[in-house]
Every structure is written in structure tokens, then in C-alpha cells.
């Protein structure tokens, strides 16, 4: 086969790959391209809806939590951790593919292992973020009263800020539970939630520090739908990438590639993994940065 390498001018004349790559890699590339259109369609739909709204939540307000940091306002912190995890796992994947080129079984296993760890770490971060967004409730103006809601696919607590008059009126309309929670959030640990619930409504209302209270209206519902839909779809890709990498790891361990004489399979898994990273770059841009 080395003899044909000399006639490089006739790539297209048949009998060989015009791109000098095996069909599997070619297919993987075109699959990724078509997958790029799936993600592209999601993100472009998101853009279209965003442009059709008068108001869109500021991501820095929405994504400002960090595990273990309580209520500290840390915009972009957690997502930058997630981004770096994916970049690093991409680097380890490059090293695994390179080790495969050198038929270095030990190195392949090592770097694949680290890539899998990175993938699982990313998924765990995502799980925490979703959990935090869904269960972490926020005082929101809904139907003229204050309700505590999390970020779900049907409601969005990140609308416009409510002005002082509306807020005072809304507080009067709200249930004791809601007001008690407001007071509890503001005054920390001075009284337990149960104790607060026992107080009369008027007393509770007096305890609310309205000047410090920033309540928002409901925001665009599509925010949650797109966020969960697209990061979920991306997370699903990460998950399948991790599964593929685990399969690769086991195959490498069992000498399947060594017997075959080449580790080209790792290369294809690598392409998929980098694509996952590539998509994250754009998800990061669309949801967290702009």
C-alpha cells in the first residue's frame, strides 16, 4: 500500500478514499455535522424566542450560586468550573488518541480514565446546578401576590424588578407562609420558620424590610424550557460520550485494539468527545455569557 502514496494527485479517481481517511471516521465527521444542525436548531430557536421577547433574564442573576457557598453572589463562578472541566477532559482525550496512535496501551487506559472522570465530574456539576435551580425558590410576584417558586419549565422567577408600591400591595395579598419565608430569608436565624408561622400576619408584614426586598415578576417561561432542554440534550451527549469512553476503556484493557493492530476506534470516540466540548462552548456562550 505504501506504493500508492506516490500518486497523490489522483485522489478522486476511485479505488481509495479521496480524503485518505477510513469510512468510519468520515461517517463520524458527517454525523457530527448533522448533530451540529440539531444543536444549531435548538440554539437558533432559543435565539429566535429570545429576540421575540421584550425582556430576558440576565444570566448573571440566574446563575450565581456555588456549591457550599450558601447565598453568596458569585456570578459565572460555577459555570467556569464546568467549562474548565470539559476543556481539561478534552485535553486528556487528545492525549488518549495520541497514545492510541503510538499503540501505547497503558497511556491509552490512563488518559481515557481521566477523560471519563472529567465527564462524570461535569455531569455531577450539571446535576447540582439543575437541582439548585429547580429546588431553590425565589419570592416572585405572581397574580398580585408573592409566591415562592423555583426555576422550572413552566415558571420563571427572573422577570422585571417590582417597584415599591406594587410590592407593598402584593405583600398584603400574600399568604402567611410566603411572608414568613420572606422574613426568614431576611432575618436569618433569629426565629425558626415554624415560630414565624405562628405570628399574626400584621406582625410579619412589619418585620419585612421592604427597602431591602427585591422581588421580581414572572419572567419569560421559555427561558427554563430552553435551558433545561438544551443543557439536558448536551448532558445526554456527555453521558453517551462517557459510556462510549468506558466501552473504549474496557476494549483497550481487554487488548481488543492491540489484537486489531490499531487504536483508530479511540480516534472516533475522541471526535465525539471533542464535539461535546465544542457544543458546550456554544451553550456556554448562549446561556451564560450573552
Amino acid at each position: 500500500m505504501a506504493t500508492t502514496a506516490t500518486q497523490q494527485t489522483k485522489w478522486w479517481s476511485g479505488g481509495k478514499s479521496p480524503f485518505n481517511i477510513e469510512y468510519g471516521k468520515l461517517m463520524m465527521w458527517y454525523f457530527l455535522m448533522s448533530d451540529a444542525f440539531t444543536f444549531g436548531a435548538f440554539l437558533i430557536s432559543y435565539g429566535s424566542i429570545r429576540f421575540s421577547q421584550n425582556f430576558w433574564p440576565d444570566p448573571n442573576v440566574v446563575f450565581n450560586a456555588f456549591p457550599g457557598a450558601g447565598h453568596a453572589n458569585l456570578p459565572l463562578a460555577f459555570v467556569s468550573v464546568m467549562t474548565f472541566i470539559l476543556i481539561i477532559s478534552s485535553v486528556t482525550m487528545v492525549l488518549a488518541v495520541h497514545a492510541g496512535h503510538n499503540n501505547d496501551k497503558k497511556a491509552v487506559i490512563k488518559w481515557l480514565g481521566w477523560t471519563i472522570v472529567g465527564g462524570i465530574a461535569f455531569l455531577s456539576c450539571q446535576a447540582w446546578e439543575w437541582h439548585h435551580l429547580i429546588t431553590g425558590t425565589h419570592a416572585t410576584l405572581i397574580d398580585g401576590q408573592i409566591q415562592w417558586v423555583g426555576q422550572t419549565t413552566t415558571v420563571n422567577p427572573w422577570g422585571n424588578l417590582v417597584d415599591a408600591e406594587t410590592l407593598t400591595a402584593a405583600l398584603k395579598n400574600s399568604t402567611v407562609q410566603s411572608i414568613a419565608q420572606v422574613v426568614h430569608e431576611q432575618h436569618g436565624n433569629t426565629m425558626s420558620h415554624e415560630q414565624l408561622l405562628g405570628l399574626p400576619k400584621d406582625q410579619l408584614l412589619n418585620m419585612v424590610n421592604t427597602a431591602e426586598l427585591h422581588i421580581r415578576e414572572k419572567g419569560p417561561v421559555a427561558f427554563g424550557g430552553y435551558f433545561y432542554g438544551i443543557t439536558g440534550f448536551h448532558g445526554f451527549h456527555v453521558l453517551s460520550g462517557v459510556v462510549i469512553n468506558i466501552v473504549m476503556l474496557l476494549m483497550a484493557k481487554n487488548d481488543v485494539f492491540a489484537k486489531r493492530g490499531h487504536y483508530l476506534m479511540i480516534e472516533k470516540a475522541g471526535l465525539y468527545w471533542h464535539f461535546v466540548d465544542l457544543v458546550w462552548v456554544f451553550v456556554f456562550l448562549c446561556f451564560y455569557l450573552i
Binding site: S13, G14, G15, F19, E22, Y23, L26, M27, Y30, F31
Partner: peptide, 16 residues
């Protein structure tokens, strides 16, 4: 994907 890579990669000799 199969059709595309077959047409690109699997043509016989001389089938430009």
C-alpha cells in the same frame, strides 16, 4: 451517512 461515505470512499478504481 452510509450513502455519503460509500460514494466518497468505496468507488472502484477509475470511477472518478
Amino acid at each position: 451517512l452510509n450513502y455519503i461515505s460509500t460514494i466518497l470512499n468505496m468507488r472502484t478504481k477509475g470511477m472518478s
